[in-house]
């Protein structure tokens, strides 16, 4: 295609947007709402996943052994645990290590009174890290059935609930976005159909002069894509500018949860959100206008 033809097509597409400004604005607003919600849900889901991942990294199951158990038996239990599919990493913490850590963390200078006694002499343990927190309950059930294990301490952290909530947010956002997509497609289709009816005479002349299908149809496709581009760029810009402020607000408001609430930076979020959001917007515009042109514009 010639550059002059490309420029002509682009110019006509932009003119269409301006000519049908009311419908164009309505379509842009719908796409903007759609992409804004998508952006918000994406931010929530991405941060949720990040928090879950961060939390998972710190989650472990600790097992303590029966009193008087031999080192060989402890090692044997360790081997059994390492073979489990749920297990990512196993750390052995001897009774001495456990006591030293306790002293350091809680007793400080008062530990001197204990001299060489180790009140935690039966507190040797395995610290087990999981590949996926959702496997925690299966592993705990297994560990509780193993001979020689006195006690299994699992994390208070409700990983399963977080995972479920994560999925729920995903499903709800998916549903809402699908509905908005349908509305946006419908509105773009109406805008383009109106443009076709307004330019009926021009289209008729073009056909008689010998314009190809591509030349007749492409301004309308461009119109849809421009609407999609503007409709997606505005909410993305809004999210970009408002993201840090929102995060700061949440952190301040829910300071008590600061150990759990860990957020991704706006740049990391936008590495995915920006291209996906723009492609979605332009894609909605393209699909809506292409479908309408095929339906209403028999060349």
């Amino acid at each position: 295609m010639r550059i002059s033809t490309l420029l002509y097509t682009l110019k006509q597409g932009l003119k269409n947007v301006i000519r049908n400004k009311v419908f164009s604005l309505a379509s842009m607003a719908t796409i903007a709402a759609c992409i804004f919600l998508f952006g918000l849900f994406y931010c929530v889901v991405a941060n949720f996943r990040y928090m879950v991942k961060e939390a998972e990294a710190g989650v472990s199951v600790t097992v303590f052994f029966d009193e008087g158990i031999s080192d060989e038996q402890i090692e044997e239990i360790g081997n059994l645990i390492k073979k489990r599919v749920e297990v990512d990493k196993v750390n052995y913490i001897s009774a001495d290590e456990a006591w030293n850590e306790f002293k350091e963390e809680y007793l400080g200078e008062y530990a001197d009174g204990f001299e060489n006694d180790n009140p935690l002499k039966d507190s040797a343990s395995y610290e087990i890290y999981l590949k996926d927190v959702s496997m925690q309950s299966a592993l705990v059930t297994y560990l509780e059935s193993v001979d020689g294990i006195r006690q299994v301490n699992k994390s208070e952290f409700t990983a399963d609930a977080l995972s479920s909530l994560n999925s729920l947010v995903g499903y709800i956002s998916g549903g809402v976005i699908l509905i908005l997509l349908a509305v946006a497609l419908f509105l773009i289709s109406n805008t383009v159909a109106l443009g076709i009816s307004v330019r009926k005479e021009e289209i008729g002349i073009m056909k008689l002069i010998g314009a190809t299908d591509f030349i007749v149809r492409s301004p309308f496709i461009i119109e849809g894509m421009v609407i999609g581009l503007i409709g997606s760029a505005i909410p993305l810009l809004g999210i970009y500018l408002g993201y840090d402020k929102l995060i700061n607000y949440i952190v301040e408001k829910f300071n008590i949860l600061s150990t759990i609430l860990k957020f991704l930076s706006v740049d990391i979020v936008f590495e995915t959100l920006l291209p996906v959001g723009l492609i979605m917007g332009i894609g909605i515009g393209f699909v809506g206008s292409f479908w309408t042109v095929r339906r209403h514009l028999k060349v």
Partner: peptide
């Protein structure tokens, strides 16, 4: 217009 739509050079 008649020339533009058949992609005649400017």
């Amino acid at each position: 217009f008649a020339q533009r739509v058949i992609q005649t050079p400017t």
